[in-house]
Every structure is written in C-alpha cells, then in structure tokens.
Amino acid sequence: MPLFSFEGKSPVVHPDAWIAPTATLVGDVTVEADASVWYGVVIRADFGAIVIREGANVQDNSVIHVGNGVCEVGPGATIGHLCLVHDCTIGAEALVGNGSTVLDGAVVGPRALIAAGSTVTPGTEVPGETVAVGSPAKTFLPLVGTAKAWVDHNPEIYRELMRRHRDGIEPV
C-alpha cells in the first residue's frame, strides 16, 4: 500500500484496518481499527490532519483532502464510490452516497445519508437521521425505508467485505 510521509508527518494505520494496495495515503492521516480504504482512494493530508475513525469505510476512487484543520470520517461512516470529501466532518454511521461531494466546513450529522450525486456546499449542516438530496443539497428528508436500511447495514457489510479482501486478494 502506498503510504507517503510529507514534511515529517506520516500516515498511521491501525493493524486491524485494511488499506487496498492501490490506495494512496499522504501525510497526517490516521486510520483506526476495522476501518477500510478501498482501491484507488487518495487521502492527502498535507495542510491538516485526516482521521478515518473505527469501522469507517472509504470506497473505490474517492478523494479526501483537508485545509488547515481536521477532516474526520466518523466511526462506522461510509464514503461511497467516487466521492469528494474536502475539509469537513462526517458523523458516526453517516453514509455519503456514490458520486457525492461534501465541501469545506460542512458537517454531516450522525446516521445522515447524502443521496448519490448530491453536493453539500461549504458550511452546510446536515442534521442527523436525515437524507440530504440535491446539488446543492437543500432538501432534508426523514431517514426511513430503504435509505435507513442502507445506513443500518452498510457498516457491517463493509467490515465483512474488508475481511474477505484482506484475506483473499492475491496479485495475478
């Protein structure tokens, strides 16, 4: 896995986390236990710190970057495929849907779901247990039905899938 020190700060990855061999981590990055960082992800912490909390997953080809503060992906949170997460806070067990963008200073509350393709603009606060929809995301709906099922089950699905990849991938 490509891990790079930058200006004296190096990524710290818990031994029980899994980083795909094609993911890239640069600088002041912390990845906690049972978290997973998938194929093609770039996490670049050259201005500030990025923390991927316990059990969180950052899926294929997403990018996380930070300004001068701390960008945090909360415990059990999901960053879906092809997302851009920039200098913001993602709450515990929140789910950022595929192709979404969450920008500077935004706060995504616990167990919120950012609908696929949505853009959370700078400084926006998405309440917990809601679904944020749109580009820009201005519509907040209650977390119910299928959306709730995704938030409820995705963290464990990805922890199990992480174990399978950790134990089962081999170069060909």
Rank of each mutant, 00 (worst) to 15 (best):
V12A: 14
R44E: 01
G74F: 00
T121Y: 14
H153F: 05
L95W: 01
V41P: 01
T101Y: 00
H165L: 11
V126Y: 02
N154Y: 08
H14A: 15
A35K: 07
V42R: 07
G109I: 01
N61Y: 05
E7W: 01
G76Q: 02
A137V: 06
D167Q: 13
L84H: 12
I169H: 11
D16V: 02
N98K: 01
R44H: 03
F6P: 02
V172M: 02
G91N: 06
L95F: 06
E93Y: 03
T146C: 03
R44Q: 04
A106C: 11
V13Q: 01
V102D: 03
A45M: 07
V126H: 07
G145K: 10
F47K: 13
A115R: 07
A17R: 00
G168E: 07
A137S: 07
E170G: 09
V73I: 15
F47T: 10
V108M: 14
T124Q: 11
H86M: 14
G55P: 04
V29Y: 02
H65M: 14
S62V: 04
D104Y: 09
V151N: 14
R166A: 15
L113Y: 09
G145C: 09
G27H: 00
I169A: 08
R163I: 05
A106V: 04
G134M: 08
V26F: 01
I157W: 02
T146H: 13
C71R: 05
A35R: 05
G55I: 00
I79W: 04
V126M: 12
D16Y: 06
G105S: 11
S100E: 03
D34T: 03
F47Q: 14
L141V: 15
A92C: 12
G117P: 12
G67S: 11
D87I: 01
G80L: 01
A23L: 07
V66Q: 10
G8C: 07
P142N: 15
G168K: 02
M1T: 14
E32N: 06
S10H: 02
V144Q: 15
A56F: 01
S118H: 04
V73E: 09
G74H: 01
P15W: 06
A77W: 00
A112F: 03
C71M: 08
C71A: 14
F6E: 08
H81I: 08
A56N: 02
I157V: 10
T146N: 12
G67R: 10
D34R: 00
R159Q: 12
H81Q: 11
S62A: 11
H14T: 11
R163E: 14
G67Y: 06
K9T: 12
W18K: 14
G117N: 11
V96P: 06
S135V: 09
F4S: 06
T24H: 09
V66P: 12
V51S: 03
V42T: 08
A77K: 00
T78S: 15
V42F: 05
P171D: 12
S62P: 04
T119R: 13
I64P: 00
P122I: 12
H14V: 13
Y39H: 14
A115G: 11
D16F: 03
E32F: 04
V107G: 05
N68G: 15
T30N: 07
V37P: 11
R159A: 05
G40R: 00
D104V: 07
G27P: 00
G8A: 08
D46E: 15
P15I: 07
F6W: 13
G134I: 05
A45S: 10
D87T: 06
L84T: 10
L143I: 06
C83A: 09
Q59C: 12
A147G: 04
V73L: 08
V120A: 15
R159D: 09
T139W: 03
